[in-house]
């Protein structure tokens, strides 16, 4: 993209990091796996938000995860990208603050003696230095 591009002319080819068709890659994983409950639930929410007056469109979600940056995009799985983008859009639109979603994630993880790392987008077990005697294993 150059500042001296003529007005009204295309800027040139754009290829997003997500546009991987034809790029060298290893073997394609073809394993089937069962959907997790959170995957079904988050897709149902996404579908409802699209169906009800297009509060959030799937194309908006795609635009957001196509701008995550390559590292985060590749860290997240298919449904994780959509869910993460949805939290961004719901915050942008003033529907649900993203901070509230992240706090709720932490509260749910804490109930399972786990913690959320929002930087690496992972959930890990809380470090336990000396578990109290007689405590039940999780």
């Amino acid at each position: 993209m150059t500042s001296d591009a003529p007005q009204g002319q295309p800027e040139g080819p754009f290829r997003g990091y997500h546009d991987i068709g034809g790029r060298p890659a290893g073997a394609v994983a073809k394993d089937e796996y069962a959907f997790a409950d959170w995957q079904k639930l988050s897709e149902a929410m996404r579908g409802a938000l699209e169906a009800k007056g297009r509060i959030v469109s799937l194309d908006e979600i795609r635009r957001v995860f196509e701008s995550f940056g390559e590292d985060l995009y590749n860290t997240l799985g298919f449904y994780e990208r959509r869910a993460e983008a949805l939290t961004v859009l719901l915050d942008e639109k003033g529907i649900v603050p993203r901070a509230a979603v992240l706090a709720r994630m932490e509260a749910i993880a804490a109930m399972e003696c786990r913690q959320v790392d929002h930087v690496t987008k992972t959930v890990t077990n809380k470090p336990t230095i000396s578990p109290p005697a007689g405590s039940a294993a999780p």
Partner: peptide, 16 residues
């Protein structure tokens, strides 16, 4: 075509 459009587009590179 490749219409040189940034942002979200649905036409992958390999068919342009």
């Amino acid at each position: 075509l490749d219409i040189g459009k940034p942002g979200h587009v649905r036409i992958p590179w390999y068919v342009r």
